[in-house]
Computed example of a mutant assay.
Amino acid sequence: MRKRGLLLAVLLLTGVAQAQVPATELTSRFRRSTTRVGQPIDYELSYRHAPAQEVIFPDSTADFAPFEFVGKTYVPTRTRHGRSLDRTVYHLRTFALDSVQRLRLSITVLQGRDTLLLPAPEATVRLLRTAPTPEGPEPPALRQNTALVPVQPEFNWPYWVAGAGLLGLLGLALVVGFGSRLRRRYQRYKLRKNHAYFLAQYARHVERFTLSRSLANMERAITLWKNYLSVLENNIINSLTTKEVVAHFQNDADVSMALQIADKVIYGNQLSEEEAETDLAFVLLRNFAERRYALVAEQPVE
């Protein structure tokens, strides 16, 4: 009898609590009367209550079937004339195919140590169909079409960008790892190429002088020799006089003898009938250029 009395008292208290929360204060509605499959739709839930009353609205874990929860927008509580208004807009979508779809949520009201679950009125929305519905029991016949449709090829930018980046990294690794070695090899190759070009041009001027005995050809050969040594050793002997050139090369005997013979022939117009003397001058200058090239080639390239 005592247990039945306690149970009856609890039921009476619960009934009083429910009576203290009028259902008309809790409203729910869809903001549109129709929706489509997968189209977002807003569901508004609002509740007017006493300012001191604590209310908890449903969150994303609530049961929104047949709808799916997308998000929600909470409106701050507004109190006017002794009544507070709480309102939340839920952003939903549905993939169900029912013509009329219903939703009924509940809010939680805290009253001291008691918790009251207050269901909102049911809200309905009508589903708009975008595909025709077959009238008969059989579905419409499907038409088979296996013909290939031409597709415009597109440039595969991601692969090309990745390939270009990989090549750039490979080139950077080669420059970092082998840059100095490749640079030294290139400079030595350019040195050999310039020396071979000088020897060919020098031999051509000497041959022309031998055939024509023209002083202009001899002067061209001497000028070519000076220009080559200027580039080879990075000096300015091409602008120096014969005496200054001999002094620059520390009075080298071959250079001194060859340039004296050349000056005598060019400036003194003392071209000897004997070819041995002029031939000796050409040979001495060429041999000296060979020796200077060998010295430069043996030096380490920076």
Rank of each mutant, 00 (worst) to 15 (best):
193 K>A: 06
181 R>K: 12
243 K>M: 04
153 P>C: 00
181 R>E: 03
185 R>D: 10
273 E>K: 12
174 L>A: 11
203 A>V: 08
241 T>S: 13
231 V>M: 03
174 L>H: 10
263 D>P: 05
272 S>D: 12
172 L>T: 02
210 T>Q: 14
168 G>L: 15
273 E>W: 09
169 L>H: 02
153 P>T: 03
162 A>S: 15
212 S>Y: 05
240 L>F: 12
263 D>C: 09
193 K>W: 13
255 V>C: 04
241 T>L: 09
247 A>W: 01
228 Y>A: 00
242 T>F: 10
167 L>C: 07
245 V>A: 02
281 A>N: 02
268 G>A: 15
191 L>I: 05
218 M>T: 08
230 S>A: 13
246 V>D: 02
203 A>L: 12
260 Q>K: 08
203 A>D: 12
238 N>I: 00
196 A>W: 05
252 D>V: 05
213 R>D: 04
267 Y>N: 13
151 V>P: 06
282 F>E: 02
173 A>R: 07
264 K>M: 08
237 I>S: 11
243 K>I: 08
282 F>R: 02
173 A>W: 13
236 I>H: 09
163 G>D: 06
162 A>D: 09
213 R>H: 05
204 R>F: 04
161 V>E: 09
168 G>Y: 14
167 L>R: 03
208 R>M: 09
179 G>H: 13
213 R>Q: 11
178 F>P: 10
249 F>Y: 15
199 L>Q: 12
189 Y>M: 00
216 A>V: 15
256 S>C: 11
241 T>W: 06
276 A>L: 07
274 E>Y: 08
246 V>C: 01
261 I>V: 05
227 N>H: 13
183 R>G: 05
240 L>E: 10
230 S>D: 04
162 A>W: 15
282 F>K: 06
206 V>W: 05
256 S>W: 08
268 G>R: 07
207 E>K: 08
186 Y>M: 15
213 R>S: 04
156 N>H: 12
219 E>M: 15
196 A>G: 04
222 I>C: 09
238 N>L: 11
275 E>G: 14
202 Y>L: 03
197 Y>I: 13
235 N>D: 04
264 K>E: 06
261 I>R: 02
178 F>D: 01
203 A>K: 10
165 G>A: 13
214 S>M: 01
153 P>N: 00
162 A>P: 11
166 L>S: 13
180 S>K: 07
253 A>C: 06
213 R>Y: 03
196 A>T: 11
222 I>H: 12
176 V>K: 12
239 S>C: 08
217 N>Y: 09
187 Q>A: 15
280 L>K: 14
262 A>V: 04
261 I>M: 02
205 H>D: 07
231 V>R: 09
159 Y>F: 07
